[in-house]
Measured scan of single mutants.
Amino acid sequence: GATAVSEWTEYKTADGKTLYYNNRTLESTWEKPQELK
């Protein structure tokens, strides 16, 4: 079967924080998503 690919993209901001963006739900979060833990 196909492996579930994470929908989350990780961005590094200018101040060194990490922003997570979900390509499916168009949601963005500063918290690390469950799927990435």
Rank of each mutant, 00 (worst) to 15 (best):
G1K: 14
G1I: 14
A2S: 14
A2I: 14
T3Y: 06
T3N: 12
T3G: 12
T3L: 10
A4E: 15
A4T: 14
A4L: 13
V5C: 15
V5T: 13
V5M: 14
V5D: 11
V5Y: 13
V5W: 11
S6V: 08
S6A: 13
S6G: 11
E7R: 03
E7H: 07
E7Q: 06
E7P: 05
E7Y: 07
E7K: 03
W8E: 01
T9R: 08
T9N: 06
T9Y: 10
T9I: 14
T9G: 04
T9S: 10
E10W: 08
E10P: 04
E10C: 15
E10F: 05
E10S: 06
E10V: 08
Y11W: 08
Y11K: 09
K12N: 07
K12P: 07
K12Y: 10
K12H: 11
T13L: 09
T13H: 05
A14G: 07
A14N: 07
A14Y: 04
A14P: 13
A14K: 12
D15Q: 06
D15P: 00
D15W: 04
D15I: 03
D15N: 08
G16R: 00
G16Y: 00
G16T: 00
G16N: 04
K17G: 04
K17F: 04
K17L: 07
T18H: 04
T18M: 04
T18N: 05
T18K: 05
L19I: 14
L19W: 15
L19T: 03
Y20N: 02
Y20V: 00
Y20F: 05
Y21R: 08
Y21W: 10
Y21E: 05
Y21G: 01
N22I: 00
N22F: 00
N23Y: 07
N23I: 10
R24D: 08
R24L: 14
R24T: 12
R24S: 10
R24P: 03
T25I: 02
T25D: 02
T25L: 03
L26V: 01
E27N: 03
E27Y: 02
E27M: 04
E27A: 04
E27H: 03
E27I: 05
E27K: 06
S28V: 15
S28R: 09
S28G: 05
T29F: 10
T29W: 05
T29A: 06
T29H: 07
W30R: 05
W30L: 09
W30E: 13
W30Q: 09
W30T: 11
E31F: 05
E31R: 04
E31S: 05
K32Q: 09
K32R: 10
K32P: 10
K32L: 09
K32E: 09
P33G: 02
P33D: 01
P33H: 02
P33R: 00
Q34R: 05
Q34M: 13
Q34P: 15
Q34S: 11
E35G: 09
E35M: 06
E35P: 04
L36N: 07
L36R: 06
L36C: 06
K37W: 15
K37M: 15
K37L: 15
